[in-house]
Amino acid sequence: MSGTLDHVMMRVGDLEESLDWYTTHLNYEEKDRWEADTFTNVYLGPEDMHEEGAMLELTHNHDQDSYDVGDAWGHIAVRVPEGDLEESYQQLMDDGVEDYRDPESCNGRYAFVKDPDGHEIEIVKRDPEQGAKWSIDHTMIRVEDADEALGFWTRKFEYEHTGRWESDSFANYFMKPEGASEEAMAVELTYNYDGRSYEMGDAWGHLAVRADDLNDYWETLEEREAEEYRTPEECDNNYAFTKDQDGHEIEVLERDFDGSLFPN
């Protein structure tokens, strides 16, 4: 099972405003889109995105212009080169981006801003060889039981630790498939020690895992007792969905980069 993280999806209220924000401030370009009767999906990413890099999927439901972010969904993190954090952050401020946590308040290690819908975006320092500027480094979700969450990603998807941070009140665990490139996105599992629970909200969509063969991958997930949220048969054998122990949705799909990102 390869399982590279393909994209992260979140919902936006004003698609054109969001597209302008991401293309202007993060220099993203539109990779593809899907127009349905009731919604639009748009895939975005840096122009020179690595083949294992993850895209951002913006979903706009035509009859809804606002969403509840909730607190189970944390943020996406985007990369800037070492030594470029303060300059990149200041450029965003000069361009009118909403500040959330500046580099000084984060000991010069990272910073946070917000997009027009209030989605949090962390800016992290990385070696340029770890991915293009503004490429997605990780997606953070909050979990109520660290042992269960780590077991889920390890057993179901064969992910392994690529980093961890233990503090007095919380822990962060970073997970990727074995052998994933530096440019691939990680999932960050945040566990707060105080036993709190979380609200999912409807602004947070899902993570997507790329499979070499959808049906083979799904069969393995079934053998490992993953929840069947939407099976391949229910999705015309184009993709499928499972859920983790906290209700975070995970899409499984095949990807053909020779043409449209979407199945015919």
Rank of each mutant, 00 (worst) to 15 (best):
W153T: 03
W153D: 06
D213V: 08
E199I: 04
G205W: 00
T220C: 06
E178D: 15
A186F: 07
M185Y: 05
A132K: 01
N192Q: 12
G163A: 14
E158S: 14
W204N: 04
T162V: 12
G163V: 02
L207M: 10
S181H: 14
E158V: 01
S167I: 02
M175E: 03
T190R: 09
E199A: 09
E160V: 08
E129Q: 11
A203R: 09
K156R: 07
I136D: 05
E166S: 12
D202N: 04
A146I: 01
E166K: 12
A171H: 07
E182V: 09
R155M: 02
Y191K: 07
A203H: 03
R155F: 13
A184E: 08
V143R: 02
E183P: 11
T139R: 00
D194Y: 08
L207P: 09
G179W: 07
M185G: 10
D202Y: 03
M200P: 14
T139L: 02
V187N: 03
G205S: 11
W134N: 11
W134T: 01
G205I: 00
G163N: 13
E178H: 15
W165S: 11
D213R: 08
K133W: 00
N215P: 12
E183Q: 15
K125E: 10
G201H: 04
Y193P: 13
G151R: 02
A184P: 12
E148C: 10
R126Y: 11
E183A: 15
T154C: 07
F157E: 03
P128G: 14
A149Y: 02
E129R: 11
T220K: 12
A211R: 06
E182F: 14
A146E: 09
A180S: 15
E188C: 15
Y173A: 03
T162R: 00
H138Q: 07
V209W: 02
D202C: 02
F170K: 01
A184K: 06
G195T: 07
S169L: 04
K156P: 08
Y217E: 11
N215R: 11
G205L: 02
N172E: 11
L150F: 09
I136G: 05
A203S: 14
A149N: 04
Y198A: 05
G179M: 12
A149P: 06
E144T: 08
E183C: 15
D213T: 09
G131F: 00
H138W: 04
D213A: 13
D213M: 10
P177F: 03
